Simulated scan of single mutants.
Amino acid sequence: MSASVDPNQYTVKHEPYYEAVGDEIALYEAAYSARMPMMLKGPTGCGKSRFVEHMAWRLKRPLITVACNEDMTASDLVGRFLLDKDGTKWQDGPLATAARMGAICYLDEIVEARQDTTVVIHPLTDHRRTLPLDKKGELIEAHPDFQLVISYNPGYQSLMKDLKQSTKQRFGALDFDYPREAIEIAIVSKESGVDEKTAAKLVQIAHRARNLKGHGLDEGISTRLLVYAGQLINKGVTPLAACSMTMVTPLTDDPDMRDTLNAAVQTFFG
């Protein structure tokens, strides 16, 4: 399987736009030079995935991303035998593929996966840097350039959905949050094409909504949703409609909370 996988298909060919908010780029580069497994912690839509893409581009490494979910099994990560007209053949999973080729493997929202699934990453995240393929009877020794990166949203932690300490303590970690106001305005303007004045209004609405987290909202308005709103405005959609579609309706079904959010939108675009 590994011989037929072209690393170029996983190469990030164009620079993903990423606006640094601190020294996270230098810290990540140092971690990669040590091949340290990394954990990115922060709220939904604050730039964790974009950061990984940007770093893969900077480091010129292939990037294999896995969106974790509660139905994902260890075989989905590691690989399985498949039937075809010639009988059975082994198919590497994304983790095995990344370990063989020396890619960065990014497990997005890892706490969504079952704990019995996540334990398969343990041998790759300590001095062994190996991946046992028990069903195949093979032990993969990770390529020297391989690195494992995971992300999760601490805001959704619970007793049922959190990483074991035995997993957490295998990783270095970087905290992510929504960018500072000036940086977020620049990001929204650049990514959506709206002028900075409009971007500033969108960011101000987001700040008001983020203050409601834990007081009626599970999550604040993400930078990603601000970019969506800006893109619609840039396509000629009225700001009120664009904000309702991207910054109000996706967040909540509660009528009172929608009224509160719509009032914030009206304040800036009414």
Rank of each mutant, 00 (worst) to 15 (best):
F176V: 14
D177G: 15
R180I: 15
A182L: 05
A182D: 15
A182E: 15
A182T: 15
I183N: 02
I183K: 01
E184F: 06
E184G: 12
E184W: 06
I187L: 09
V188G: 04
V188F: 02
V188Q: 02
S189V: 02
K190F: 11
K190G: 05
E191N: 04
E191M: 14
E191V: 04
E191C: 11
E191H: 07
S192L: 06
S192I: 02
G193T: 02
G193M: 00
G193S: 06
G193C: 11
V194P: 09
V194R: 09
D195M: 10
K197I: 04
K197C: 05
T198P: 00
T198E: 08
A199T: 12
A199K: 07
A200Q: 07
A200K: 08
K201L: 11
L202A: 11
L202C: 12
V203T: 13
Q204H: 07
I205S: 08
I205F: 09
A206L: 05
H207L: 10
R208I: 01
R210Y: 06
R210P: 15
N211T: 07
L212G: 11
K213P: 06
G214N: 09
G214T: 14
G214S: 01
H215A: 13
H215L: 15
H215I: 12
H215D: 15
H215S: 13
G216E: 12
G216K: 10
G216R: 01
L217W: 07
L217T: 13
L217N: 10
D218Y: 05
D218T: 12
D218F: 09
D218H: 12
E219D: 14
E219F: 12
G220I: 05
G220W: 00
S222M: 12
S222V: 07
S222T: 08
T223Q: 04
T223S: 11
R224H: 08
R224C: 02
R224A: 14
L226V: 08
L226D: 02
V227C: 08
V227T: 13
V227Y: 01
V227F: 00
V227L: 01
Y228C: 02
A229Q: 03
A229Y: 04
A229K: 02
G230C: 05
G230I: 01
Q231Y: 02
L232R: 14
L232D: 12
I233R: 05
N234Y: 03
N234D: 12
N234S: 10
N234Q: 08
K235Y: 02
K235R: 13
G236H: 04
G236A: 05
G236R: 06
G236T: 07
V237G: 07
V237R: 11
P239K: 06
L240S: 13
L240R: 08
L240T: 05
L240I: 04
A241P: 00
A242K: 04
A242G: 09
C243Y: 05
S244L: 03
